[in-house]
Design a protein around this nucleic acid. Structure first.
Lengths: 335, 335
DNA sequence: CTGAAAGCGCTTACAG
DNA sequence: CTGAAAGCGCTTACAG
């Protein structure tokens, strides 16, 4: 027999309410389901009693039957990057509007992504948003078997058959290159994040291919690990070399902010001595302290797309690629 | 009879695994519980089969019996304030380390706090972290009845009998005032966040009482709504008046960053023309672009305290107040 | 409109 | 160590 745990002695159930009102447990259950028909009188009586007894339906018992948990998992790689916290803000608001909540999985956990996904599955999540790292074939099949919609947000994994919504990173990289090139830059550098993600690779590839097509060679690179601090120290290193770059592309904005601060500390004038361009258009990029020129990701639209992937009846996985656009501010010159 | 929803046709259960291996369903269940004793051979056979069949235990079914959901709810007021996203990062990491996940409730939801808490209760959360707004007596009693630990993080509600962990905001406000006073400021201003929270009120009260005790009158005030933009425009307004302040206390750092940018746009030199001091010590405050002098909240310790309140057996609600400390950077002068 | 009953997928005494 | 069985708190056909 199941032991009633000491810590839950006071749990009040639908049967308690039923007894109190003098109806069946099933009727109490119906009172909490807006579309089942019942006398207004009965419903009111039940709802009043529920309030009086502090009754709240147990959503897990419901999930067991309906198969819906109203929980969407979100695996977040870096909660210190405003791009992702902005996404979390927007996702949680929209999901709450339709009665769902987001369960956070912190990608910084050493136990890793696959373990996280296994845990998500235990929670019977209705959907899964992945903004971190990559995902293995095996784990994908776990989700597909259960027909749980998974969407990769701001990344995709080549060869893995799964929903994804991204900005056109190659085109964005080219746009960044074009902006710098048109302004007459001559010594280029790029600070990348993490060479294992397609997002990073595509942006860098777009950037360098545009320049190489125009005869530019020797593009310097530095690793910024997708963080402010990483961008800061990569920029310092790059700028202290002889023949320091006069044009710098940072694969995301948070690294670009670090690079700006590094350049200023070194006494470089921006955009005079050095132009800097980022990617994302996080809110901080637009603030007076930075005024960063950047490639804006259409985050609102990206989330729209992700939401429909999350909620539509299971169909073939699709991959949406949206166009970013150049936001000119003061860290680049005119062409 | 319960309908098996079309969207979950593939769900594999412990009975499926049991049939596959040739043991009882109970044995499969035990195989997933590390402390129940069983033959290594059997356990291995079951775990292998589970992997092969893509079986993952249903945590809701478990919760129904154990009364533990391994979910902790966190109500977050402002995901754009790095102080709270840093807290989320830290909480989620520590909770994951003990097998729990955080379920986010976005306080920006127009449906309000009480509705959010009702939803949390439906999810049978094991605990509840509140970093937003206030909480009503009624809702408190809902939690107390269920013996669910609630902790108010960085706030408290007077007269509500509930756990809370805060920085000593009055002392912090006094420390801020002292820093400015000792440096010889003469015209003071404070930008507050939201006058309905004790956190805000206490900081302002500490600040003004320190100064009033020293004969300072006419402290100017402006409302910054706890945001960068609010701090920015409040500072603009304050600084454009005749007899503009030469010392500004912002009740949190994010508003102070806005104030710094506003002052710079107006051509004020910091700390020469204007000293600025914040509260929190968010990571951005330490960056070269700002170098904000601030009162650091001992966030690590605060989270330690919150974690023990969340996990200990139900005891009397306690209230912990930790001391902040002054972090001198370049937005204030020496005394 | 409402009740009695089955069943969602587990855990856990109780026997053996 | 393992199985049979009860039961966690609900939802939902099925009758009436």
């Amino acid at each position: 027999m199941a032991k009633i745990p000491a810590s839950r002695t006071q749990r009040v159930t639908s049967s308690d309410v039923a007894r109190f009102v003098g109806v069946s447990q099933a009727t109490v259950s119906r009172a909490f389901s807006p579309d089942s028909s019942m006398t207004d009188v009965t419903r009111t009586k039940i709802l009043d009693a529920a309030r009086k007894l502090n009754y709240v339906p147990n959503s897990f018992a419901r999930s067991l039957i309906t198969g819906e948990s109203n929980i969407v998992a979100m695996l977040i790689g870096d909660l210190h990057n405003p791009f992702y916290t902005a996404a979390l803000d927007e996702f949680s608001l929209r999901l709450q509007a339709v009665g769902k909540q987001v369960l956070v999985f912190n990608g910084a956990d050493p136990k890793g992504v696959d373990e996280a996904i296994r845990r998500m599955l235990e929670y019977q999540v209705d959907g899964l948003i992945i903004t971190a790292a990559t995902i293995s074939m095996h784990v994908t099949s776990l989700c597909v078997d259960r027909e749980i919609p998974v969407v990769m947000f701001n990344r995709y994994v080549p060869g893995v058959f799964i929903n994804s919504v991204c900005c056109d990173n190659v085109a964005g990289g080219r746009l960044a290159a074009n902006t710098l090139f048109a302004a007459g830059a001559s010594r280029y550098a790029v600070i990348f994040g993490d060479n294992s993600t397609t997002t990073n690779l595509d942006r860098v590839q777009g950037f360098t291919s545009f320049l190489e097509e125009r005869g530019v060679r020797n593009i310097a690179t530095g690793s910024g690990r997708y963080t402010y601090e990483g961008g800061y120290s990569a920029a310092k290193k790059l700028l202290k070399q002889k023949n320091a770059p006069d044009a710098l592309f940072c694969v995301n904005d948070i690294m670009a902010l670090g690079a700006i601060d590094a350049a200023r500390e070194l006494g470089r004038s921006i955009p005079g001595d050095l132009m800097i361009i980022g990617f994302d258009d996080i809110i901080e990029a637009s603030r007076p302290a930075y005024q960063l020129t950047t490639i804006r990701q259409p985050i609102r639209q990206m989330i729209d797309e992700a939401m429909t992937m999350l909620t539509r009846p299971t169909t073939e996985p699709t991959s949406r690629i949206l166009q970013g656009r150049l936001i000119k501010r003061t860290t680049t010159r005119e062409g």
